[in-house]
Design a protein around this nucleic acid. Structure first.
Lengths: 154, 154
DNA sequence: AATTATGTAACAGCAAAAGTTACGGAGATG
DNA sequence: CATCTCCGTAACTTTTGCTGTTACATAATT
């Protein structure tokens, strides 16, 4: 089956909390940005609260990031949301009596592990702050483009 | 969704062709090692023939590896079997009018791409020959262990 | 107090993968 | 040359796990 979107959605969620910390953040408001249902958002928020990444702002009762975004890496989020699922799947049903089927699993475990490690190392080098910074840059570029397109039309 | 087992099964298949090149290799025989159905094996073999990695041995009419196993990397196999599926999934349904939802996709595309690239680079550094060599080592270790266990019992 | 939002649990729907059935055709065997 | 086996492929079924929905008890808000 296909991988879940939980990892992406959770990054989205955390960025949203930070970018929109000044408005009232209900699960419905957040869901409108992720384009999912409020229940799904509550589930994601719940998992993050459990892991200590989100708490409640005493001022406005918003959920908010409980840790400096510089100190949250994408690997941290990945492990919370999909940590159980290996990136590469090994077929567990192979004939143990065969010279190939009986030995392929540990061989693949090693190699896949190495590949997965490489990917997760990249994720560990990126923080939520990097995401938020990139979002702002992308947004500025987009707005400048829209403005120039508008001038073009006029 | 989780990834399919096609990647693993195809590596298994190619190793099997090489290790058992001396016996009659029907799809049923191969299926017994992978523990799947002959039809599934035929599908995998078909894809590999299409890609030029397998041809037919004129001697015994077995399917056989058409390229030196040293020159087949796991990345080659990965691209044939799962090349279309990204390792990390990006939620395509986000609100374009939101400062986060409207910009998160390209941001994630960049970072996920970098992580995926790192994993695929590892896969590209491993060949089918490495797999076959490792299988032989694992098998020898296993057999030695069995022999010593047997001596223990006696 | 009344309203609104949360946290969960249970259920339904959907999409993708794996396995199954079926069958025409190619090649092997006697 | 007739039979038998296996292949290649299409269509269908089953399974599985993710997403979203419904429902409701609890907590917080006004």
């Amino acid at each position: 089956m296909r991988l879940s979107t939980k990892f992406s959605d959770t990054i989205h969620l955390l960025a949203f909390l930070q970018v929109y910390s000044d408005i009232k953040l209900t699960s419905a408001v957040i869901a409108a940005s992720i384009q999912t249902s409020p229940v799904v958002v509550r589930r994601l928020v719940g998992a993050l609260k459990n892991a200590g990444f989100i708490d409640n702002d005493p001022k406005n009762h918003n959920p908010r990031i409980a840790i400096d975004p510089k100190d949250i890496t994408l690997l941290d989020i990945y492990l919370i949301t999909e940590g159980h699922t290996p990136l590469f799947v090994i077929d567990k049903e192979t004939n143990p009596l065969c010279r190939v089927g009986g030995n392929i699993q540990p061989v693949l475990t090693n190699i896949y592990g190495e590949a997965e490690q490489a990917a997760l190392t990249v994720l560990n080098s990126k923080t939520m702050q990097d995401i938020i910074d990139s979002l702002i840059v992308h947004n500025k570029v987009k707005q400048a483009k829209e403005k120039s397109d508008l001038a073009q039309d006029a």
